[in-house]
Structures are given as C-alpha cells and as structure tokens.
Design a protein around this nucleic acid. Structure first.
Ligand SMILES: [Zn+2]
Ligand SMILES: [Zn+2]
Ligand SMILES: [Zn+2]
Ligand SMILES: [Zn+2]
Lengths: 151, 151
DNA sequence: TTGCGGGACGTTATAAAGTTACTTTTGATT
DNA sequence: AATCAAAAGTAACTTTATAACGTCCCGCAA
C-alpha cells in the first residue's frame, strides 16, 4: 500500500472509531499501519518484530491490537496463512472472500453476493445458522498465470 | 462414528489405496482409524496422545500420516480449528465445504455445486485460477439452534 | 548374493502461532 | 482528589507444526 493510500486508510479508521465511540489508541493505530503498509498478509510475529524496532513489546501487545482491529472490521485474518491483512472497505461490516495467490502471495478481497447467497442457501437446507463464513481460495492470480512460476 | 461404519470406512480406504498403488501402512491406518473414531474434528496432538497409549511416538509420526491421508483425500483439515476429520466420501477427489457448529462442535461436510460454481465464477472474473478453495462456515447447527446453548 | 536406492519411520530439537495470569498505567467520571 | 475500568506491560507457557538427520526394510539390478 502506498503512502497516499495508507494515510487515507488511517484517517478513515480514525473517523470510524470516533463514530463508533471506540478508541484507536496509538498502539492499535501503529499495528493497523504496519498491516496496511505491508500490502500483503503479515504474521503477528512479523508485526511484533517491527514494533520492537522502536520499543520493547511482547506477543499480547500485538494480539490485543489485532483483536480490536478484527472486531472493528479494520483488518481480516487469513486462517490458511495465519496472517492478517487490511480491509479494503471497512465502512460496513461484511463477510468477504479471499483469493490467495500461492505464487506471488497477493490477496484479493471480494464481497461477492452470489457466493454469500449460495452459502446461505446451502446452510439453510440443513437448518444451519451461519455466523462467520470463511472463504479462502488458494490458487494462481492472473499475473502469475501468465509468467513462469517465481523460482 | 460407530464401529460398523468405521470398519467400512477402513475397508474402503484399504481398497482405494490398493487401487491407487499407494501404501496404507499400519501407522497411517491407525491414524485414520483414530480420526474416524473420534467422530468430530480432532487435533494432531490428540491423535498423538492416543497413539502414545500404545507406543512411543513424536509429532512427525502423526503429521506424516496426516499428510498422506490428506493427499489421498481420506481426511480433511479444518483450517479454522487446526483439526482433522474423516472424509465422508473419499472415492473421488473433491472440494467440499464445512458447516461447523460453534456450540456442539459438530461438522457437516457438504459438496454443494452452487457454492463451487459461484466461487469459480467470481474467481474467473478476476482471472484467478483456483486450486484449493477453503470454505468453512462457523455457526449454529439445527440441533443447537433449538435448545439453549451448551454451558 | 550383494549392494544400491527410495520410501517409511524414529528421534531430537526447534520454529511459529497464540494464550494465561498477573501487574501497572492511563484516562475518563464522579 | 478518589475511583474504576480499559489498555498496556511483562513473564511464562501452551499448542501447532517443521527441520534435520539417522535407521530400517524392501524391491531390484549388477
Ligand atoms: Zn473487508
Ligand atoms: Zn500471483
Ligand atoms: Zn470429503
Ligand atoms: Zn450444534
């Protein structure tokens, strides 16, 4: 994520948190910044080591900030990667889907109504009430499909 | 999984592996048995501790067996639970979806064409080539929706 | 028969991800 | 100023997974 986009994302997060009456503390803001700046999924311990460049810190510091950011929908967790990524449209709560390129590591966040719809329908048929649908598709992105695999 | 079903599942696994020219060794068979017997998602270290009741064993023993069983499509991994479950229809390779009850822990394996279709369509729109679609829906199963939450 | 060569397994150690429990600080409210 | 809860600091620990290397066993070729 470039500097310009980052600024906007952080400003938007500030505004959202203010609106919701929750505190985007400096720590939380810092973690959000690191997640966004990475531009790709980043692990909790990667975040931690970057934080440690400026100050002492331990795992709970990062995990607490991530918990907050996840609750507020400002970041998402990619379960298959054990990594976190900034949300591209945090304004409204949503259930999104991720396309994860196994070659270059790029991730695309989708919000596809037809996927959500088919999930809902299938669940309803068995009487299941979904609360958190996880959809992570591993594969090859358009870019990487064109060129020989990296390495 | 009851004893009767278990027998059948193991026999089916034997047959499949023979057909494919791969070896369902005693270790692998034992791990498959433990996964199936559990009847619900079971962690690698739970499997390990059960194996240890009979003999010395270390994590790689279990993970290697699981890798084999995953490759052969005899078990699935639930990424959100870090746990493994027997496949209900291992005859043909497939990409399935899981409904995971957060209350009772029960998991239903679906093979829903409309979900797969909508995933394929959405991916195709961005030029993404899916190889491993992960779909795990956390929620409440029909049974648990009826009665007050456990605990 | 002997000597590969590869797959399966044993063993030790370590990495990576996440949590618990308890203390201290901070900041808003009264 | 006193109070209280949310946030952050800190140390230890648990859980999940992998790396690295050695051994055994079996099929097959020389
Ligand atoms: Zn999002
Ligand atoms: Zn790519
Ligand atoms: Zn299956
Ligand atoms: Zn249930």
């Amino acid at each position: 994520m470039d500097e310009r986009t980052l600024e906007k994302a952080l400003a938007r997060a500030e505004a959202l948190c203010a609106e919701r009456g929750v505190r985007l503390t400096p720590q939380r803001r810092r973690v959000l910044e690191l997640v966004c700046r990475a531009g790709h999924p980043i692990g909790a311990y990667d975040i931690l080591s970057q934080i440690r460049e400026g100050a002492a810190a331990a795992p709970p510091t990062v995990y607490r900030a991530l918990d907050f950011l996840l609750e507020q929908g400002l970041v998402h967790k990619l379960e298959t990667l054990h990594a976190y990524i900034g949300c591209t449209h945090p304004e409204h709560p949503h259930s999104s889907q991720f396309l994860i390129c196994a070659d270059c590591g790029d991730v695309t966040e989708l919000e596809d109504e037809s996927i959500v719809g088919s999930l809902r329908t299938a669940a309803a048929e068995t009487g299941f009430k979904p609360s958190r649908p996880i959809v992570e598709v591993i594969g090859t992105c358009a870019n990487c499909a064109l060129k020989p695999p990296r390495k």
